[in-house]
């Protein structure tokens, strides 16, 4: 146990933790800025949203190691190729959830809002996005957890991150480093999962929260 705690004090531990978080945060942010406009463009059309959702589904089926490994012969070794791969992994869950979430908004509510004189932009900003927010956030959460987990694999294509410690532990046969790295990654992933769960709740409009609480009782 003591030796594992020592791992957390290693200078490279902190450095790799920072790289891990950098990779994950940047990939997620780029993923959101790519997926959200696409979802906003396609959700009105049944055909295009089906195309987006099915592409997203196929994208989700691609193993994360496969994406990282395929990026390597094309773009080479290092941080930037890893970032490209992680961004590709971040997009599908957000795209799927944003498209389905926006489509699921009850058309009667939109009609009512139009009847009250709201413009298209207002309907989107004040009605559709808030109602779809929980579903969109669920997508962002899935994406974030997946990106944090997959960033562990960036070490295989020279991207750094906490996976570096796990691999180092294996190579040197040092159990403490292997366990310390693994525990740190696991904790980071669980924090991401729980943290985004709280965000998801925070972004659920109060009106929706009441009904969903009601239902669960």
């Amino acid at each position: 146990m003591d030796s594992i705690l020592k791992v957390f004090q290693r200078p490279d531990f902190l450095a790799q933790l920072v790289v891990h978080i950098e990779l994950s945060v940047i990939a997620l942010l780029i993923g959101i800025t790519v997926a959200m406009p696409v979802a906003l463009l396609v959700y009105r059309s049944r055909l295009w949203s089906a195309v987006a959702i099915n592409t997203g589904n196929i994208g989700r089926a691609v193993p994360s190691l496969a994406i990282l490994a395929l990026v390597f012969p094309l773009l080479g070794f290092g941080f930037a190729p890893s970032l490209v791969a992680l961004t590709l992994l971040a997009i599908p869950p957000i795209l799927i959830n944003a498209s389905t979430g926006l489509r699921q908004v009850n058309p009667q509510i939109i009609d009512a809002a139009r009847g009250m004189g709201l413009s298209n932009g207002q309907v989107l900003g004040h009605i559709q996005l808030p109602i779809a927010a929980p579903v969109i956030f669920a997508g962002i959460r899935t994406s974030a957890v997946q990106v944090v987990a997959s960033a562990t694999l960036a070490t295989f294509i020279g991207g750094g991150g906490l996976g570096e410690l796990i691999v180092l532990g294996f190579q040197r046969n040092e159990l403490a480093i292997q366990l310390g790295g693994s525990l740190a990654v696991a904790i980071l992933a669980i924090i991401t999962e729980v943290g985004f769960g709280l965000l998801e709740r925070a972004f659920t409009p109060k009106g929706l929260l009441v009904t969903s609480n009601h239902r669960s009782k």
Binding site: Q178, L179, T192
Partner: peptide, 18 residues
């Protein structure tokens, strides 16, 4: 099961091996 699911696979493998 949700906690188990969110553990990154490389970490899970590295822990199990020990």
């Amino acid at each position: 099961t949700g906690l188990l699911f969110s553990i990154p696979s490389l970490a899970f493998f590295a822990l199990l091996v020990t």
